[in-house]
């Protein structure tokens, strides 16, 4: 009979419509509140609509997720070499980068003028980067990794979209937190939790390598933890001073408004 096909199709839409509410009822009010149903709602057993309420709940990205790259550095309270870059400026990432978005300046010893295994400057233009992950894949020192922070939208690109070394550098602890399994696999391949060169040197001299990454060792040592926290607080305070704060933005806005008002008053005065 003519029209049955359409009715069948409408049946499917009706099923979808009902399933959404079946799920709502099944989870009660917890559907959008609780953490526990998220996995089911976003999984294969989900029926009906399954919207992620983005700013209020975000799908955590998987471990292998690739966004723009960052550089791994030691933690600021690392006992051996605090804040040291893992990067040795060997240049493989810059050579393998398909769109050529990496610029590296190799540093030289000021006295002997021989290359020092640490970059003097490091730039990544994220307006060219294609997030392919080759730099991380081919880095022999596990020093450049793909970041998970995708919330990078900006009102201006001239100043902010070329990431320089301070902006790129993130402590190993951060890397471990975003990708624990991969980090552990890599550490096993390296033979320890430190930089491959450090491990090599330590093995040569017979010194023991770290059994755990430094931030874990530090967590076990309350004194070191306190020291690290104080340092972090000081750093945060310094960062808060240096960068533009909410108050600065408000003040700037106020100034702009005052300026426009003054202009308008001048205009009004002229009119009169």
């Amino acid at each position: 009979m003519n029209g049955t096909g359409i009715l069948k199709g409408l049946g499917v839409t009706l099923k979808h419509f009902i399933q959404t509410y079946v799920d709502d009822i099944r989870y009660g009010g917890r559907k959008y509140l609780g953490m526990e149903n998220f996995e089911v709602r976003q999984g294969l057993k989900a029926q009906g609509a399954f919207t992620v309420q983005y700013p209020d709940e975000k799908i955590a990205v998987p471990e292998r997720f690739r966004f723009v790259p960052f550089l791994v550095v030691n933690e600021d309270d690392h006992p051996d070499a605090p804040g040291k870059d893992w990067c040795t400026s060997c240049g493989i990432c810059a050579k393998v980068c398909p769109p050529q978005c990496i610029w590296i300046v190799r540093s030289e010893d000021p006295v002997t003028k021989r290359p020092v295994p640490e970059p003097e400057a490091f730039f990544i233009d994220i307006d060219i980067c294609m997030n392919c992950g080759y730099c991380a894949e081919f880095c022999p020192f596990d020093a450049i990794k793909m970041d998970h922070d995708y919330e990078l939208a900006d009102f201006d690109r001239t100043g902010t979209h070329i990431h320089d070394k301070p902006k790129l550098s993130k402590p190993y602890e951060y890397y471990y937190n975003i990708a624990p399994t991969t980090a552990a696999e890599e550490a096993q391949a390296r033979g320890g939790w430190e930089h491959p060169d450090v491990i090599k040197a330590k093995k040569k001299s017979g010194e023991p390598v770290m059994e755990q990454p430094w931030f874990m060792l530090r967590a076990e040592d309350p004194e070191a933890r306190a020291r690290a926290e104080a340092e972090r607080a000081a750093k945060a305070a310094a960062a808060a001073e240096s960068t533009v704060s909410e108050a600065d933005i408000a003040a700037e806005r106020q100034a702009r408004r005052a300026e426009a008002l003054a202009r308008h008053r001048a205009w009004a005065a002229k009119k009169n």
Binding site: M35, E39, A60, E63, R64
Partner: peptide
């Protein structure tokens, strides 16, 4: 293939999922 399809929470609102890869694929 990873052993598990799982994610790590980095920001406050991140919601985490964790599935066994082969089970996920089989069901898919």
């Amino acid at each position: 293939l990873p052993e598990r399809i799982h994610s790590t929470a980095v920001t406050v609102n991140d919601k985490v999922r964790d599935y066994n890869t082969m089970e996920f694929l089989t069901e898919l």
